[in-house]
Design a protein around this nucleic acid. Structure first.
Length: 858
RNA sequence: GCCCACCUGGCGGAAUGGUAGACGCAGCGGACUUAAAAUCCGUCGCCCGUAGGGGAGUGGGGGUUCAAGUCCCCCGGUGGGCACCA
């Protein structure tokens, strides 16, 4: 069966009328390009409103995959539809071109990262062009173009001047054998992915963006993003993680103090210990005095984050011997522990433990025999089961006794502030964004380190700081760092020998403003104000849910930073966001557990309908596995190029839209593609074959179907219900095929409407059909305005009403559109089935919902 | 553990509180063909019935309503996000 579908249906000679997509698709692509159908000025002219459609730009890995096909098809539907709707549509494309894979290729194959990247771009651009996307290729750029990253450096210096950039020490994964910093995904089971050496944590001085300055605004503004998916807003909200509480300074009995953050200052009277993170200075101090403390800290550090799962339930601690005084209870003091569950990165790296009202503290106190003092009672007076973490009434809490949790928090903070030992604060989960990467293939950070002057920005006239071409990947580490000359420069301030910053930017920086650069991609400044003022924000942004947090949050931050530095004047970059699902496919495994490509397999269908599979070579059985996201490692990928060769771009586009709602994961199936192609050929045959009769009723019926379809498909394209749009188009196709008696004018109208309705999805076929239907016409469907349904034809002549008795369907009746209620009730009651269901019982209530239903209550 | 989403025929899915299963895929029967492919016609959720028709039915249980896939409550399952977050 699948063999049949796999056979090359387009090369088999046959006499029928067929759409020759191999000839047609390149021809129409050329026609659009020649007419510059998709070009818009940097500053929109005329009175057409603007619409900016953008899909997340691809990483140039070498080949496009089905995820790209889906992403860019969805965007192209929106772009083409909005264009027809009278908008000036900007729809650009570019390349997220810096990143680690290019360096890996350099190390593995000796090819320069730049050559590898630009070769990949050339290849992928050609593949994308075959899809017939309505993209304005004149705006294309790659983030590794010096014209782009040079402007990024200028932007960074502006941010620096505005105080949005800083330097901090931070921890990195360090490979001691390769002497290199590792990204998280390069650390496998605690070891470097190449050297296999145990990864160490090391502190480096790094550049940071002060994204936390905008935490409140980034959180609040989520409420204004009404065309974003709720779950993305929720994920961003959780990531930003606002919590209100207090910072409290505890005095050590030996002198000195330690500050904690808490969200429950109302439970201070229930304190029985204080705990600090292993990296906390107090822990370091304890280690200096006590080798056992040092050993415990070392143990915590070696555990690493990946082993947390193993030790998960195990709360472990070490008593430092230090003690702190309680701020409210005169004379009371409590032990200071080092605890493995306290995070240095969150709050202050120290907590006070109140076991009676916190799960973790309870577990810890139970294990180490620390006190458990109840200080909150359930408000309803019920018996308490500890730990009790809900709100309630303060008890055993001195001046707080009797207060509700909210009031008690306030009371505790007021007292702490009055005593000068604490303050109410808002704490964020969000941390500042570290952007330094110790790599070659990225945008150089435009700074110079001078022994005398410190960190000095590269003067604007010396930008761009270009990456050197001659780099050596034969030794580990950052090639910029061991380049013989590149980093040696003179200090711009004192002119003495100095050292150029050899770190490059995190590639998330590159993708945080590319959407703004598209508005004026060749400008000699980061963006042209008139262009960004005209085009931003992006009206519809489309991409994968995997970028729900970081990329979108960083872009939102960058837009604010650019607003603050006067580069543009919007806060939110993306007014509308759509997150598409993944493309999945069945996976296959051989008897010896190897993943297999679909092409290696023969399929068979058993009598009971079950499918089986065998290896083409050797005929051994194959296990048909789960439907999973397409991935090279599982070999369940389908090459878009091969699909376009075999079926054409329109088929791929139509199938990808028809299968299911675009926000869900879709399954790529060979039979589904074949079905989409079948529809294309069917429509082409309908348009190429003259037909029609002269039956007035049939004509009217077809015209009504046409206009109902126009209304329904318009609504579906508008609302991302693309699979429903496809279904409605199928219905119109069926209606045309069935309407043999309809007159030629009605048939022509239906075919023309169908052509224009499918044009956002299958642009090549639409042009081909249009040239069939309007011979000699020089028009391009790509330039035609959208269709409007005729309201007169949307009205039906008669209505079919459901007749229910006690809410159960018993019959349907045909009534005139203008029939009055009495007539309708009479007709409904007269139905034989209705009479039977009534069983002679009197009707207590008659309900009539116009155009829908009649319901009798007995 | 916390938060969120989802659960409808063999499959993908459709359904402003108003005829559940549109449309497609797969299947089945037939026409055409020497044969196959392609195409066309028909059929196609389950149970009972020759049929007209009837019954139950949208993960399970309860509720609101003349009427629930849709709204509310509880439970279960699947998927996702975050996670020793103080």
């Amino acid at each position: 069966m699948p063999n049949a579908a796999m056979s090359d249906i387009s090369t088999t000679p046959r006499p029928e009328i067929r759409h020759d997509f191999r000839n047609a698709e390149p021809r129409w692509q050329q026609a659009w390009a020649e007419r510059r159908c998709f070009n818009v000025p940097d500053v929109p002219d005329g009175d057409k409103p603007k619409y900016y459609v953008l899909e997340m730009f691809p990483y140039p890995s070498g080949k496009i995959h089905m995820g790209h096909v889906r992403n860019y098809t969805l965007g192209d539907v929106v772009a083409r539809y909005k264009r027809a709707r009278g908008f000036q549509v900007m729809h650009p494309m570019g390349w997220d071109a810096f990143g680690l894979p290019a360096e890996n290729a350099a190390r593995e194959r000796g090819v320069h990262p730049g050559k590898w990247t630009y070769d990949n771009i050339a290849n992928m651009r050609a593949e994308l062009k075959r899809m017939g996307l309505s993209i304005e290729w004149e705006r294309e750029f790659a983030t590794c173009d010096v014209e782009y990253y040079g402007q990024q450096q200028a932007l960074f210096l502006d941010f620096f001047k505005a105080g949005l950039v800083g330097r901090k020490e931070s921890w990195v994964n360090w490979d001691p054998v390769d002497n290199t910093v590792l990204a998280n995904e390069q650390v496998i089971d605690g070891r470097g992915w190449r050297s296999g050496a145990l990864v160490e944590k090391k502190q480096l001085s790094q550049w940071f963006f002060s994204i936390t300055d905008y935490a409140q605004d980034l959180l609040d503004a989520l409420g204004t993003l009404d065309r974003w998916p709720e779950r993305v807003k929720l994920m961003q909200g959780n990531w930003i993680g606002r919590s209100e509480g207090a910072r409290v300074r505890f005095a050590l009995t030996e002198g000195g103090e330690v500050e904690v953050f808490t969200t429950r200052p109302d439970t201070l009277f229930g304190m029985s210990f204080l705990a600090v993170a292993a990296e906390h200075p107090l822990a370091t101090a304890a280690a200096a005095l006590n080798p056992a403390a040092a050993a415990f800290i070392a143990e915590c550090r070696s555990m690493g984050t990946s082993e947390v799962a193993i030790e998960q339930a195990e709360k472990r601690g070490f008593d430092t011997g230090f003690r702190v005084k309680h701020p409210f209870i005169e004379g009371a003091s409590f032990p200071v522990w080092i605890a493995n569950f306290v995070l240095m990165e969150y709050g202050t790296g120290a907590i006070f433990g109140c076991p009676a009202h916190d799960e973790r503290d309870f577990e810890f106190a139970t294990k180490y025999g620390l006190g458990i003092n109840q200080v909150v009672a359930p408000a309803n007076g019920e018996a308490v089961k500890l730990p009790f973490t809900d709100e309630g009434l303060a008890t055993n809490s001195g001046f707080l006794d009797g207060l509700g949790t909210v009031a008690a928090k306030r009371g505790a903070i007021e007292r702490l502030e009055a005593m000068g030992v604490g303050t109410g604060v808002v704490n964020w989960r969000l941390r500042d964004w570290g952007v330094s990467r110790q790599r070659y293939w990225g945008c150089p950070i435009p700074f110079i380190h001078c022994e005398a002057c410190g960190v000095v920005p590269v003067p604007a006239e010396q930008l761009p700081v270009k990456l050197p071409e001659d780099v050596d990947f034969s030794r580990p580490g950052n090639p910029l760092d061991h380049h013989p000359t590149w980093k040696h420069v003179n200090c711009p301030q004192c002119a003495k020998p100095a050292r150029r910053e050899t770190d490059t930017f995190d590639t998330f920086v590159d993708s945080s403003w590319y959407f703004a650069r598209f508005c004026s991609p060749r400008a000699a400044e980061p963006v042209t104000r008139a262009a960004v003022d005209a085009w931003l924000p992006v009206d519809q942004y489309i991409g994968g849910i995997e970028h729900a947090i970081l990329h979108l949050l960083y872009s939102r931050f960058f837009t604010r930073a650019m607003q603050q530095t006067g580069h543009l004047n919007v806060a939110e970059p993306f007014a509308g966001l759509f997150t598409q699902g993944m493309v999945t496919h069945e996976s296959y495994k051989s008897v010896d557990g190897r993943w297999l490509y679909p092409e290696e397999i023969d399929f068979a269908l058993a009598a009971d309908g079950s499918r089986s599979a065998t290896l083409k070579e050797g005929g051994t059985p194959v296990t048909i596995g789960r439907v999973e996201a397409m991935s090279k490692s599982k070999r369940n990928t389908v090459d878009p190029g091969a699909i376009i060769d075999k079926y054409g771009a329109d088929t791929a586009r139509w199938f990808i839209l028809s299968d299911n709602p675009p926000e869900r994961d879709m399954e790529w199936t060979e039979s589904g593609v074949a079905g989409a192609h079948r529809f294309i050929q069917r429509v082409y045959r309908l348009a190429a074959t003259p037909g029609g009769g002269s039956d007035a009723a049939a004509s009217k019926k077809l015209r009504q179907a046409t206009h109902r379809t126009i209304a329904a498909v318009t609504e579906a394209w508008e609302s991302f219900s693309f699979n429903v749009a496809v279904a409605r188009v199928h219905e119109l196709g069926n209606a045309i095929a069935d309407a043999e008696a309809a007159d030629p004018a009605a048939r022509q109208e239906a075919l023309e409407a169908l052509t224009r309705l499918i044009s956002p999805a299958m642009p090549h076929l639409a042009e081909e059909l249009w040239s069939l239907l309007r011979p000699g016409s020089a028009e391009l469907v790509a330039e035609l305005p959208w269709l409007d349904a005729d309201p007169a034809l949307l009205k039906a002549d008669s209505l079919t009403l459901a007749v229910q008795v006690l809410g159960k369907l018993r019959a349907t009746i045909e009534v005139a559109v203008d029939a009055d209620e009495a007539t309708i009730f009479a007709a409904a009651e007269a139905e034989e089935n209705v009479q039977r269901a009534l069983e002679g019982r009197p009707i207590r209530k008659r309900i009539h919902v116009k155009g829908r239903v009649v319901n009798f209550v007995v």
